[in-house]
C-alpha cells in the first residue's frame, strides 16, 4: 500500500509541472468565481424583495459538471503516456503490483482535483459571514462528500481508460464520450419506459449527486454507486496493464 502513496505523490507533484493541469485548475476556478458572483448578485436582488439567502450548493454542482469535461484531460496521459514513453517498463519491472500502479496514479489525480476543490471552500465561508444564522454546514458536508465521490469515480474510470490506450488523445476522447454518456444519456430511456426506468436512472452519474447528496441527502445507494464505479475503473486499469504484459 505504501507503493500507492509513493506513486500518488509523484503523480500529484507532476501535475504542478503540467500546463494542462494549471489550465484545468484556472478554468474551474474562473467559472466558479463568475457563477459565485452571479449567485450573490441574484440573491441580493431577491433579498431586496424579501427573498432568500445565497445558495452555495450549485457551485459544487458546477464543479462536478465541469469535471465531466475537464477530468479526462487530467487522466488521459496517466498510463497511456508511460506506455508511449517506455517508462511503463520501469514500473512493470519494479516490485510494484499492477493494481498499486493504477491506484497510485488515480490517487494522485484525485488529490490534485481535491486541491482545487479545497480552494472552493472559500465560497461557503464567505456566504457564512454574510447571512444569519449562517449556512447549513451539514448540507455543505454532504455536498462535498458527494463531490469527492463523483470525482473519485470519474478519475478512476479515466485512469482505467488511459491504461487501455498508448495514445493520450484516444484516451481523452473515449473518456469524454463515456462521461458524456453517463451524465446525459444513460437516464434518457427512463422517460420512455413503462417499467424498469429506475434502473437507467440509477446508472446515471448525475442523479446521485444533483438530486441527492448535493441537497444534503446521504443515501447508501448513492455511495455504493460511486464506490462501485471507482472500483470498476481501477479494475479496468489493472486488467489493461496486465494485458499489456502479455502482448
Amino acid at each position: 500500500m505504501k507503493n500507492i502513496w509513493t506513486i500518488a505523490k509523484r503523480e500529484y507533484e507532476n501535475y504542478f509541472n503540467s500546463p494542462l493541469a494549471y489550465a484545468v485548475a484556472v478554468g474551474v476556478l474562473f467559472m466558479l468565481g463568475i457563477y459565485f458572483a452571479l449567485i450573490l448578485y441574484v440573491s441580493s436582488q431577491q433579498s431586496f424583495m424579501g427573498g432568500g439567502i445565497p445558495e452555495v450548493a450549485p457551485l459544487n454542482w458546477l464543479f462536478v459538471f465541469l469535471m465531466i469535461f475537464l477530468s479526462p484531460a487530467l487522466t488521459m496521459r496517466l498510463i497511456s503516456d508511460e506506455a508511449r514513453m517506455g517508462t511503463l517498463e520501469l514500473m512493470l519491472t519494479a516490485p510494484v503490483r499492477d493494481f498499486e500502479l493504477v491506484a497510485g496514479k488515480w490517487l494522485g489525480a484525485l488529490l490534485f482535483v481535491l486541491s482545487i476543490a479545497l480552494i472552493t471552500i472559500i465560497y461557503p465561508l464567505i456566504v457564512n459571514n454574510f447571512v444569519e444564522p449562517g449556512i447549513d454546514w451539514l448540507v455543505m458536508l454532504s455536498s462535498y462528500l458527494g463531490l469527492i465521490l463523483v470525482c473519485a469515480a470519474l478519475l478512476a474510470l479515466g485512469t482505467g481508460i488511459s491504461a487501455i490506450f498508448s495514445n493520450q488523445f484516444a484516451a481523452f476522447f473515449v473518456t469524454l464520450g463515456l462521461f458524456f454518456f453517463l451524465w446525459f444519456m444513460v437516464s434518457l430511456p427512463a422517460n420512455y419506459l413503462p417499467v424498469g426506468g429506475e434502473v437507467f436512472n440509477y446508472l446515471s452519474i448525475s442523479t446521485h449527486f444533483s438530486q441527492s447528496m448535493n441537497n444534503g441527502t446521504i443515501a447508501l445507494g448513492d455511495i455504493v454507486y460511486y464506490l462501485s464505479l471507482t472500483a470498476l475503473g481501477l479494475f479496468i486499469g489493472s486488467t489493461a496493464v496486465e494485458i499489456r504484459r502479455w502482448n
Binding site: 514513453m85 517506455g86 517508462t87 511503463l88 517498463e89 520501469l90 519491472t93 519494479a94 516490485p95
Partner: peptide, 13 residues
C-alpha cells in the same frame, strides 16, 4: 523484481 536490477535497452526515464 525485488532481486533484479534492470536497465532496459531504450533507457526509459
Amino acid at each position: 523484481r525485488k532481486r533484479v536490477g534492470y536497465l532496459p535497452e531504450t533507457v526509459p526515464l
